[in-house]
């Protein structure tokens, strides 16, 4: 029982912390972020297993985490409000070439990151060539090119 409760508590804590950290934190992983993730993983492992390294305990912890994740995804599917609370919603950050600064600041995104996404995804060079840029729930930036972006010219 203790293992199930520990796994549930850790799942909830990670859910809250990663939600607070925001979408961009995991989407753009720097070397430091990567190290931080490893440290988080190590700390989580300690909390999950304690001093019980038996196979049955590992099976209980994994089973609990998977079951909670399935349960939460079913609940999110049924409740849009819960879905928004847990996963947030996509945010438009460029509207017809115009940067929406307040939204960018809140999401900790700068202009360069949008231009990188525009170059990588569509080979666009300037903001005016972007119709919409959207910060997706996954943390990635998707770009809708302006019809007259002229990228082929």
């Amino acid at each position: 029982m203790d293992s199930v409760l520990r796994a549930a508590a850790v799942y909830l804590i990670l859910l809250i912390i990663l939600r607070i950290a925001g979408k961009r934190t995991l989407a753009q992983v720097t070397v430091f972020d990567f190290i931080l993730l490893l440290i988080i993983g190590e700390a989580t492992q300690q909390a999950l297993l304690g001093e019980d390294f038996s196979i049955i305990n590992a099976a209980i912890v994994i089973g609990t985490l998977v079951l909670l994740d399935i349960g939460l995804s079913v609940l999110k599917q049924r409740s849009e409000a819960l879905d928004r609370v847990i996963d947030d919603s996509p945010v438009v950050i460029v509207d017809h070439g115009k940067l929406l600064r307040d939204r960018m600041d809140r999401s900790r995104i700068d202009e360069q990151e949008i231009l990188v996404a525009a170059r990588e995804l569509h080979g666009l060079e300037r903001l005016e060539q972007i119709k919409f840029a959207v910060l997706e729930r996954s943390g990635g930036i998707s770009i809708v090119p302006a019809e007259s972006s002229g990228k082929d010219s």
């Binding site: 029982m1 203790d2 293992s3 199930v4 049955i56 305990n57 099976a59 209980i60 089973g63 609990t64 998977v66 079951l67």
Partner: peptide, 15 residues
């Protein structure tokens, strides 16, 4: 999987 976790809560695997 559900039965396994319920059994774990009940204490079939200790504690």
């Amino acid at each position: 999987l559900v039965v396994f976790i319920l059994a774990a809560i009940a204490g079939v695997f200790g504690d």
